[in-house]
Design a protein around this nucleic acid. Structure first.
Length: 893
DNA sequence: CCCTGGTCCCAACTT
DNA sequence: GGGACCAGGG
C-alpha cells in the first residue's frame, strides 16, 4: 500500500501532478502541509528525484523545520541528502554568502578594489536600520518631527518591496516629503554599502539582482533545483515572486500553495496579485482546490466563512467539514480588559483540567491583535497557575548584553559594520566618549573610510588626545586579536582552495575569505549547502513559565546553573580545536572583562545577564557542534523570528493573530473584538485594509478545532494609566450569524454596562458582581493554589473541587460550565478550596519562596505588618523585587 | 566621562 | 507600561 492512499482525491491529485506549474488553493485546515510533504516524498520515493534537487520555501523557520521533519518521517532516511526546505530569507542569505561578489563592479580608480558587497557582509536588523537613518538624518539636519526614522524606514521598505530604488521613488514623488525620503533612501543605501551590510529586504532584492544579472549563478541554481514548492503563496511579495520566476527558469516545475483568504501581510509588501494571477503567469497551470477542512467543526467553519464572505476581493470557495454541528461559538462581553483576561484564564483552567482527565489534547490559544494585549492575559494566567507560553515580544536577542556580544561578533566578521562598532566601541566603558566618537565620525566622512578605518587613521595621524588614543589602540588590538583567531580557521580553508586571491579592501578589513569555486560548471552539489537551522536556542532563558507539555518536570536547563560548567575557559575537550564562535565569545568576554564587571556590580540583574551570556556561549557551542562558522551563527541570530519560538508542548499559548497562522488548537479565544482594536484603528479608512483585517479574523477563527470563544471588553484602557474608554463592538461580531453564537457571562452586568456605562463603572452592581476581579484576592490566590496542586496529579472530583452555590459571585462560571456541558463535555464547576490565610502568610528574611513569574527566590527583607507588608525577594534570574505580600502569589518553596 | 533620574512620547502585524 | 532621550551631578 502506498502512503498516497492516505490522501483524499484532490490531495492526491495535488501530490501527483508533478510536472509543470500547479496552484493549490488550500482552504484553512485542508491539509496543506500534508500535501507539500507528501509531494516531496512522492518525488523522492516514487519518481526517484534526487532530494537535493527539490527546493521548498516557507515563511518561518519553524514551518521549514516541521516540514523537514515530516518529510524525513515519510522518506525514512533513504538518503543522507535532504531536500532544501528553507525560508525565503535564509535561502537568500545562503545564495548571497556564496555568490554576492559576482555583483561587484570594478572601481573607477585604478588600483582600488571593486565596489560592492563582499561575502562577509552583515545583516542589519530593524534597530540597526534605525540607527543608520538616525545618524543620517542628524547629519543632514532633517526635521525629526515630520519625518521620524521610523516613518522613513517604513517608506524605504515599502519602496523596496515594490522594487523601487531611490531614483524611481524620486521620479514618482508628488510631494516634498517623498522627495526627502528618496534622498534619505539614497544616503541610507550608501551607508549600508560602506558598512558592507544588507537589511532584510536587501536579502531578497540582491538575490533577485544576482540571479538576474549573473547567468552562471542563475544556471547553477536552475540546474540544481528541478522542483520548486512555495508555501503561503498568498503572502509572497514582488521580490519573492521574481525570485520564484528566476529559480523556476523555463522548466516551470513549480507548485504554489496558498489561500487568498489568509493573505495577511500586505503591509509587508505581500502582493495578493501573485496568487490571483497565477494562471496568467503560467497559462498551462493546473489549479487544484482543497476544500475539505479536517480541523474544525461545522459551526466554527460556518462562522468563519460567513465573516470572510463579506470580502469582495477573493476567489471564493466552499469549505466543508465532516464534523457536523459542534459547539456553538461562544461570545463573552467583559466589562473591562482585566475581566476579559480573567474570564479567559478561568475558562482555560477548567478546560485544561477536564481535558487532561479525559486524556484529550489540553491545548488552548489566546489570540489578540496587538502584542501589548498579552500583558493582561499573562497576569491572569499566573493568577490561575496556568503554564503559558508567549510567542513574540521581547526575544533573547533583544537583551542588551546579547546585542552587545552579537555586535562584537559582527565587528569581528566585518569591521566596517559601523553600527555595531559604535555599539561596542565603548562597551564596557573604556574611555571612548562622545567627543572622540564625533571626531572619528567626521574623519570617516572626510576620508570616506568606515569608522574602523578612521580609528586606524586617527591613531596613525595622532589626531586625538593621548588618553583617547590609547583607549582606541587597545580597542583596535582587541578586535584584531579576535580576528586573528578567526583567520586561523580561514587559513586552513585557503590551503584547500587553490587559486585564491585575497583582495585589498578599503580599510583592510575584508576577510581573506575562502572562495568557493566559481559558480559555474559544477556537476555535483553539496547537499549541506543549504542545511536548515535548528532551533534549540534561547527558549529556556526567555520565559520561566514556559510549559513542557504534560505538566511533568522535564530535564531542561532550568535557571541555567547547570550550564555553568560548560562555559569554563579552556573547554577543549571536544577534540582538535580550531577557534570557534564559542571560543571567540569566551575570548571577548574575558578580554573585555564583561562578566567580571557584571560580577562586581553584584546585583541580581547583573547575575541574570551573566546567565544570558552563558546561554549565548552555549548556543555558540551548539553551533560549533553543527560545524557552523561565525557567519552562519550570526545569520541564524539575525533570521530567527518570533513565530519560531512557538512551543507546541505548551498548554496555553498567547500570541498575535499573525503569529497563529498555520497553527491549530482545540480551544481558541479570539480577544479584543472592538472597533479600533480589531479591526485596528489604522485600518479603518481603507476598504482594502479592512478586508485584510477580516482575513485576519478568518485566520484566527479557523485555528479552532473544537471550541471558539470570542471576547470583547466594554471598557478598555489604551495606555497604562489613562482612563478606560468605552468601546464599540467589532463589526466582525455582527458578521457571525446569530444562530451560531452562544452568549456567555452575566447578562445582568452587561445590561447594566450598556444602559448606563459610567454609572455602572462606579456602582456596586458593576464593581462587586464583576465575576473576575483582580481585587478579589482570596479567590485568586486560592485558585492559584488549587490549580498548582493539580498540576502534576490531576484528581478529578477530589477534595479540591466543590460546586459553588448559585449565590457565589461566579455566575458567569456557572454559565460557562453549562456552555461546556451543553456540548457533551462534562465540566464540573470547580473552585479550589479557600486556604487558611495563616498557612502561607508572614514570610521572613532568608526563607525560600516561589513566585509564579519569577520562580524561586530568597526573602531579603520585610517591611510593614500583616498582609500589607512589603517583602523584598531576591530572584536569581530577575533580581531584587519588592512585592506586596497581599498581591504577590508567593508560596513557600 | 559616566551614571542617574526625570520627562516625553509612544504602543500594529514581522521576515 | 516602558523605552528613548536629556540634563545635571559625581
Amino acid at each position: 500500500m502506498s502512503f498516497l492512499d492516505q490522501l483524499n482525491p484532490q490531495q492526491r491529485e495535488a501530490v501527483e501532478t508533478t510536472a509543470g506549474p500547479v496552484l493549490i488553493l488550500a482552504g484553512a485546515g485542508s491539509g496543506k502541509t500534508r500535501v507539500i510533504t507528501f509531494r516531496i516524498a512522492h518525488l523522492i520515493e516514487n519518481l526517484g528525484v534526487m532530494p537535493e534537487a527539490i527546493l521548498a520555501m516557507t515563511f518561518t523557520n519553524k514551518a521549514a523545520a516541521e516540514m523537514a521533519e515530516r518529510v524525513d518521517k515519510l522518506v525514512g532516511g533513504l538518503s543522507i541528502a535532504k531536500p532544501v526546505i528553507s525560508t525565503f530569507h535564509s535561502f537568500c542569505v545562503r545564495v548571497l554568502r556564496r555568490d554576492i561578489e559576482a555583483l561587484r563592479i570594478p572601481s573607477t580608480v585604478p588600483g582600488q578594489p571593486p565596489i560592492g558587497h563582499t561575502k562577509n557582509f552583515v545583516i542589519y536588523d530593524e534597530g540597526d536600520q534605525q540607527s543608520v537613518l538616525k545618524s543620517i538624518m542628524k547629519r543632514l539636519g532633517v526635521d525629526d518631527k515630520q519625518l521620524t526614522p521610523r516613518i522613513v524606514l517604513s517608506r524605504i521598505s515599502w519602496a523596496k518591496n515594490h522594487m523601487l530604488g531611490p531614483q524611481e521613488l524620486y521620479l514618482q514623488s508628488a510631494d516634498p516629503k517623498t522627495e526627502k525620503v528618496a534622498h534619505l533612501f539614497e544616503e541610507y543605501r550608501k551607508e549600508l554599502r560602506r558598512a558592507n551590510a544588507l537589511d532584510f529586504d536587501d536579502l531578497l532584492l540582491e538575490s533577485v539582482r544576482l540571479l538576474k544579472t549573473s547567468a552562471p549563478v542563475r544556471e547553477y541554481y536552475n540546474r540544481r533545483f528541478q522542483y520548486l514548492l512555495i508555501d503561503e503563496y498568498q503572502d509572497t511579495n514582488r521580490p519573492q515572486y521574481q525570485l520564484m520566476r528566476l529559480l523556476v527558469g523555463d522548466r516551470h516545475n513549480v507548485c504554489a500553495v496558498g489561500d487568498e483568504d489568509q493573505s495577511i501581510y500586505s503591509w509587508r509588501g505581500a502582493d495578493i496579485r501573485n496568487i490571483l494571477e497565477f494562471e496568467q503567469d503560467f497559462p498551462e497551470a493546473k489549479i487544484i482546490r482543497l476544500e475539505q477542512n479536517y480541523r474544525s467543526t461545522q459551526n466554527i467553519l460556518q462562522g468563519a466563512s460567513a465573516v470572510v464572505a463579506n470580502n469582495i476581493r477573493r476567489k471564493g470557495k466552499n469549505l466543508w467539514t465532516a464534523r457536523q454541528g459542534g459547539a456553538r461559538i461562544g461570545f463573552y462581553e467583559a466589562p473591562d480588559g482585566e475581566n476579559e483576561a480573567l474570564f479567559v484564564a478561568d475558562s482555560i483552567a477548567r478546560y485544561v483540567r477536564e481535558a487532561l482527565d479525559r486524556s484529550e489534547d489540553p491545548r488552548a490559544a489566546v489570540l489578540y491583535r496587538t502584542n501589548s494585549q498579552s500583558r493582561l492575559f499573562e497576569e491572569a494566567m499566573r493568577r490561575y497557575g496556568l503554564k503559558y507560553h508567549v510567542v513574540g515580544g521581547f526575544s533573547f536577542y533583544e537583551r542588551s548584553e546579547i546585542k552587545d556580544m552579537i555586535s562584537y561578533l559582527k565587528v569581528i566578521q566585518n569591521p566596517d559594520d559601523s553600527i555595531s562598532l559604535l555599539r561596542v566601541v565603548n562597551t564596557p566603558a573604556r574611555g571612548i566618549g562622545k567627543s572622540t566618537i564625533e571626531i572619528l565620525e567626521r574623519l570617516a566622512l572626510e576620508t570616506g573610510l568606515s569608522l574602523w578605518g578612521s580609528i586606524a587613521e586617527a591613531i596613525r595621524r595622532e589626531l586625538l588626545p593621548p588618553r583617547a588614543l590609547s583607549s582606541l589602540k587597545s580597542f583596535r588590538q582587541l578586535i584584531e586579536d579576535a580576528r586573528a583567531m578567526q583567520s586561523g580557521r580561514f587559513a586552513e580553508q585557503m590551503e584547500a582552495s587553490a587559486e585564491d586571491k585575497p583582495e585589498p579592501h578599503i580599510s583592510a578589513s575584508s576577510q581573506p575569505a575562502a572562495h568557493d569555486e566559481p559558480v559555474s560548471n559544477e556537476t555535483s552539489f553539496d547537499p549541506n549547502e543549504f542545511g536548515n537551522f535548528s532551533f534549540d536556542f534561547g527558549a529556556a532563558a526567555e520565559n520561566p513559565q514556559e510549559s513542557h507539555g504534560d505538566g511533568l518536570p522535564q530535564p531542561t536547563n532550568e535557571a541555567g546553573t547547570s550550564n555553568l560548567d560548560k562555559v569554563v575557559p579552556g573547554d577543549n575537550a571536544r577534540g582538535p580545536v580550531l577557534p570557534s564562535t564559542a571560543d571567540i565569545l569566551k575570548f571577548l568576554i574575558d578580554r573585555t572583562g564583561y562578566i567580571k564587571l557584571l560580577e562586581e556590580e553584584d546585583t541580581p540583574e547583573a547575575y541574570s545577564r551573566i546567565e544570558n551570556l552563558r546561554e549565548l556561549v552555549n548556543a555558540a557551542m551548539d553551533s560549533r557542534d553543527r560545524g557552523e562558522t561565525l557567519d552562519a551563527f550570526l545569520d541564524h541570530a539575525a533570521l530567527i523570528s518570533d513565530a519560531d519560538d512557538y512551543d507546541e508542548r505548551a498548554q496555553v499559548t498567547l500570541m498575535s493573530l499573525h503569529a497563529a497562522k498555520g497553527l491549530e488548537f482545540p480551544l481558541v479565544f479570539l480577544s479584543g473584538l472592538e472597533e479600533g482594536l480589531f479591526p485596528h484603528s489604522r485600518t479603518l479608512l481603507q476598504p482594502d485594509d479592512i478586508e485584510e483585517e477580516r482575513r485576519l479574523c478568518y485566520v484566527g477563527m479557523t485555528r479552532a478545532m473544537d471550541q471558539l470563544i470570542l471576547t470583547r471588553a466594554v471598557y478598555r484602557r489604551r495606555y497604562g494609566t489613562d482612563m478606560p474608554e468605552a468601546s464599540v463592538p467589532s463589526r466582525f461580531l455582527e458578521e457571525v450569524p446569530v444562530g451560531l453564537i452562544e452568549e456567555l457571562g452575566n447578562t445582568r452586568s452587561r445590561a447594566a454596562t450598556s444602559t448606563s456605562r459610567t454609572a455602572a463603572r462606579t456602582s456596586s452592581a458593576y464593581g462587586e458582581s464583576t465575576h473576575y476581579s483582580y481585587e478579589d484576592e482570596d479567590q485568586s490566590s486560592s485558585w492559584q493554589e488549587g490549580s498548582r496542586g493539580d498540576g502534576r496529579k490531576r484528581q478529578p472530583g477530589g477534595p479540591k473541587t466543590r460546586t459553588p452555590s448559585p449565590s457565589t459571585p461566579y455566575n458567569s462560571i456557572d454559565n460557562i460550565a453549562q456552555f461546556f456541558a451543553s456540548r457533551g463535555k462534562k465540566f464540573t464547576v470547580s473552585r479550589p478550596p479557600v486556604e487558611e490565610p495563616s498557612g502561607k502568610r508572614g514570610f521572613r528574611p532568608g526563607q525560600k519562596v516561589r513566585h509564579p513569574k519569577y520562580g524561586e527566590g530568597t526573602v531579603y527583607q520585610r517591611e510593614g505588618e500583616g498582609e500589607e507588608a512589603k517583602i523584598t525577594v531576591q530572584f536569581p534570574r530577575f533580581g531584587l523585587k519588592k512585592l506586596v505580600e497581599k498581591y504577590a502569589q508567593l508560596e513557600r518553596a
